[in-house]
Amino acid sequence: MLQVEGVSRSFGKLVALHDVSLRVDAGSIAGVIGPNGAGKSTLFNLITGLGRPESGTIRFSGKRIDGRPTYWIACLGIARTFQNLRLFPHATALENILTGEHVRLRSNLLEDLVRTPGQRREEEQARARAFELLHLVGLRRAANVRAAALSYGDQRRLEIARALASRPRLLLLDEPAAGMNPVEKDGLAELVRTIHRTGMTVLLIEHDMRFVMGLCEHLTVLDYGERIADGVPQAVRENPRVIEAYLGSELPA
């Protein structure tokens, strides 16, 4: 479904990614791991059109998407969350999700202006769907609470719900478990599994190895912008290069 081939990107003298390749098959849960500064976020940014790779290609469902505008890639069916949460803080949880449905709604400016029956029906459906998503992430009761007033864990879940609202075909999660306690992490892993069971393809970035090991079917390991390992979690964990890369920071458990 997603094919990253030989992608390189540098910022000035700093090489963020060097000749990185990656495949995500439809219906799978894949993970990209690596120590801080390994280039994981840069990879996500390139996939969602924040910047253009200096070489290499990125394909989604066979279509070239590298260097395309972000909104265009989102319309194709790639949704993401952010490492440092990017909700709309002053909008309610419900409004956040409704905004996520943007690409699915068809009403145009004039229809919005005069509120045609079709537009009203569509808005009704959008709200119903938004409530379903709120239910899915356990935030139904918080529908009309401002995003900024939610707890950190709830904000993370809301951001996932917002990403799902566009009915993407691929969901990118950027360090979804960052800053969570072990209980919250378990809950999150359960949520990701639930989403995956609906047929969603998921690619996530993490540096918490334990979280990824239990969740992902396929792992890619980056270190200093290079891919040092790729395969099923068990094999990756025993790879000497991975152990070396993680030595001193976090040993794979």
């Binding site: 949704a79 905004t99 943007h102």
Partner: peptide
Amino acid sequence: NLRSSRIGRAWMAIREDELAARHLG
């Protein structure tokens, strides 16, 4: 009407966080 519709929410998104807005298509 515009505020509480698809386009109004898009404006809200741009105002609150333009980069996130682009990621929602």
